[in-house]
Design a protein around this nucleic acid. Structure first.
Lengths: 321, 321
DNA sequence: TTGTAAGCGTTATCAT
DNA sequence: ATGATAACGCTTACAA
């Protein structure tokens, strides 16, 4: 007990004893066992982070934001990559709970409408904050950008500034918030300009480059007269995939197809035709999500919160500007 | 005890009892406490990863490789970012040890010649594998590419193919393996062609873009007649920083300065003048490092190993090709 | 097949 | 100022 007190710098230990203990500990190469400590304190100083895809540059940047906050508060990050598979995501969350993490930050790959899994987690009082891809209506906090509005704005840019009327959408899965929201923004922009939606021009592409490539191929298979003039993509990787398909088909950006993305990841300004996209402050998203989670852990803020961060349109050449 | 047996699917439990227990556990929302389990088993199924800079695209890619291996073996990753500060790195390692991780994967930011810290870690029998930036001669394993040779090859490309004779080097810190090795490769290439090294053309730039920018500025301050014709950079971010400085000065790549990098990160083929660089198989580095660590943990391979992965030269336009 | 006792390394609580 | 005891939740070893 005295050893414990000395090593934790408590007041009620004799100076000399303390000195001796610290010396001895050092000479032994002693390291306190946090596992044992956690067992009694019911606190691990550990936060679980689940991301859907570590290769999408948006997420490492979010992790940096999270890191900034957690480092200062002496929390460790347990990072897991769900690889866009809900099954892996569930496994990750269960393991993290079993590891007694003090809280979980997650961007969900879930593509089913059944929210039982997360409802149970929330009910179990596990501290949980979603970021970017949220599951709403189950009483969990969420940090995300104004997806719908931004998607509407970028679509309207195509309509109002460039006078394009035939606009396609390479969408994310409809069951994922950002997939749904960005699609709705696109729809609203069309409606406001009295453009009618063309079913052939809405193609689900997932969130990855390969999906964008495949989706664009479908559009390129339409008779030329039925092809759209502009493409609104659910995110940057999908836009890059689509660009690849367009290039392969010998068509030109923005002359044959204007195209837009969403994320503004590191490659967006660098590709052959720089990508007009929505700038999502990834670092900020991570920071805010981590801050909210720490508040929940510290019991400072009981109520769930929906935190919206404003994204901005980043105009480059791919839209025809 | 019977509960423990049932939940761990041991053989000696009555079928009906087991069924009942599992049902009850589910209905209670019971999650086993791995912290308690770890305390007795002295195993956490957890691996610590320390990287110097999460924004350098090379490292997330390494993490992906690590992830692939550890996911299959049911290990969790605790990720920490040392931000190129050795102090933070030490703190991270100490915390990880205190957390009883089963092993540590680390790319060191250490810039001092004093290896006492890691010697102690190795002696304490903590399983440790370095990757990319190693600390050698202390009996730890290391996974890295053939830095010196690759650096020599890319420098010789500048000399032999392009006939450049005035070649500068924006180096990493001399105390870090890759800084030293890549510098030595550069030197050897010069020697083999009987070119003499010019002190003004060796500028330490660290590993980040900003460092590359500043270092290049110094070179641009030399009288034009004393300026080099080509720049060999210690890694891609430094090369990007240098490119920025060159552009600002109104000079041209590769006409005024040829330039090369090292990493072949995601931006290398995309920048204005695509970067000739050394392609480092980051995913492979991560995979191999994780595999070696798991072997050490399982006691399969006692002896430390130096694992060298072959990098390849990636020719693009920035060298004048 | 089921149960009891002890211990993993730490800290809170209550003596001394 | 120091120490003894119990407890955190689990598993191993040994009964019953």
């Amino acid at each position: 007990m005295t050893v414990s007190r000395a090593l934790n710098d408590r007041s009620n230990v004799d100076k000399k004893t303390k000195e001796k203990i610290i010396q001895k500990a050092k000479s032994m190469g002693y390291t306190p066992n946090r596992v044992a400590k956690s067992l009694v304190s019911r606190k691990t100083q550990t936060i679980g982070v689940v991301i859907p895809e570590i290769t999408h540059a948006f997420f490492p940047e979010v992790v940096r934001g999270i890191e900034e906050v957690t480092y200062r508060s002496d929390y460790q990050l347990i990072l897991t990559n769900a690889n866009e598979q809900f099954e892996r995501e569930q496994h990750a969350v269960n393991t993290l709970r079993s590891q007694q993490v003090d809280g979980i930050l997650i961007s969900s790959s879930q593509t089913v409408e059944d929210y039982a899994f997360y409802k149970e987690i929330v009910n179990s009082k596990t501290h949980l904050v979603f970021f970017d891809r949220c599951i709403q209506g189950i009483g969990a906090s969420c940090v995300h950008v104004n997806d719908r509005e931004s998607s509407e704005l970028i679509t309207r840019h195509l309509i109002e500034v460039h006078q394009y009327e035939k606009i396609a959408h390479l969408s994310g899965p409809r069951e994922v918030t950002i997939g749904r929201e960005r699609y709705m923004g696109y729809q609203e922009a069309l409606e406001k300009s009295n453009l009618t939606e063309n079913r052939d021009w809405i193609v689900e592409a997932g969130f990855k480059e390969e999906g964008g490539y495949q989706a664009m191929k479908k559009i390129l298979e339409l008779p030329q007269s039925d092809q759209p003039r502009a493409i609104v993509c659910v995110n940057d990787p999908v836009a890059f995939g689509a660009m690849e398909a367009i290039k392969e088909a010998g068509r030109k950006i923005p002359d044959d197809f204007a195209i837009t993305g969403f994320s503004d990841e590191i490659r967006a300004p660098l590709v052959e035709v720089p990508l007009t996209t929505v700038h999502q402050p990834a670092y900020e998203v991570g920071r805010r999500a981590a801050e909210k989670l720490l508040k929940l852990i510290d019991g400072e803020s009981e109520q769930p919160e929906d935190i919206e961060i404003t994204a901005t349109i980043q105009i480059r050449k791919s839209c025809g500007c």
